[in-house]
């Protein structure tokens, strides 16, 4: 291996130089889709361009991407449980108190990010991530999902984001319109509904990814 190390570095250097040259050969002026996006903003239902792209113009990507997130969780669950983390010490009172304060704050922040996403930076993914962080903190203090919530309630929460998105996407189809073609009058409301469910699902999925196993599984030994 050591004998090839220099060769590998040389090849990668050449790759970097080649790619760098290609990048530098691009014109100085961006020629993206910004004019198209701005031209259609008034029909998008939101006033923040990134949210308009994510949830409306390229909403189909976002729908599939939520399926990717769900898939990652399905994949981890199908591995049949990961070895339990060995906490180095019991969570101290500091972490406990911190969590008591932080978790409500994080939930409020998530709600704010979700709400503000329509007209300013923020949105479902950022809000969902903050919610997921709250879930991770709770787990660090030893909190576990109650047994009666671990089965169907958890599963329904996990898929709610994709499912609601799918329903909203398919709504225009019986009327002969295209997939995900919102009526401009309701686009804002529909996007908020999709984002609200997406936020909760993303948050719970991320927290569940951290936990690493289907909580209804019997402990793998």
């Amino acid at each position: 291996m050591a004998g090839y190390a220099w060769l590998l570095r040389l090849l990668l250097l050449l790759l970097a130089v080649g790619l760098g040259y290609a990048v530098l050969s691009l014109p100085d002026q961006a020629q993206g889709l910004q004019p198209d996006v701005l031209g259609k903003m008034d029909q998008s239902g939101v006033t923040h361009p990134v949210t308009a792209v994510l949830l409306n113009f390229r909403g189909y990507d976002t729908l599939l991407e939520m399926a990717v997130l769900l898939l990652a969780l399905l994949g981890i669950w199908s591995l049949g449980g990961l070895p339990e983390a060995r906490p180095e010490s019991e969570p101290g009172p500091v972490l406990g108190t911190l969590t008591q304060v932080l978790v409500p704050v994080l939930i409020v922040v998530a709600g704010y990010l979700l709400w503000t996403g329509a007209h300013a930076p923020g949105g479902a993914f950022q809000a969902g991530a903050v919610l997921g962080a709250a879930g991770v903190l709770l787990q660090l203090t030893g909190w576990r999902l109650p047994r009666r919530a671990a089965g169907h309630p958890l599963r329904i929460t996990l898929v709610a984001g994709v499912a609601v998105f799918l329903i909203v996407a398919a709504l225009p189809l019986p009327g002969g319109r295209q997939l995900l073609e919102y009526d401009p009058n309701y686009a804002g409301v529909l996007i908020l509904v999709v984002e609200a469910f997406a936020t909760v699902s993303i948050g719970v999925t991320l927290a569940a990814l951290f936990f690493g196993a289907d909580p209804t599984d019997k402990a793998p030994k």
Binding site: A85, P87, P121, A133, F210
Partner: peptide
């Protein structure tokens, strides 16, 4: 930036540290 801080650094970091302890 928000997505990176929350997901890229925050949750990926948490996942990585959890994996380390495991």
């Amino acid at each position: 930036a928000l997505a990176e801080a929350a997901i890229g650094a925050g949750l990926t970091g948490a996942l990585l540290i959890a994996a380390l302890t495991r």
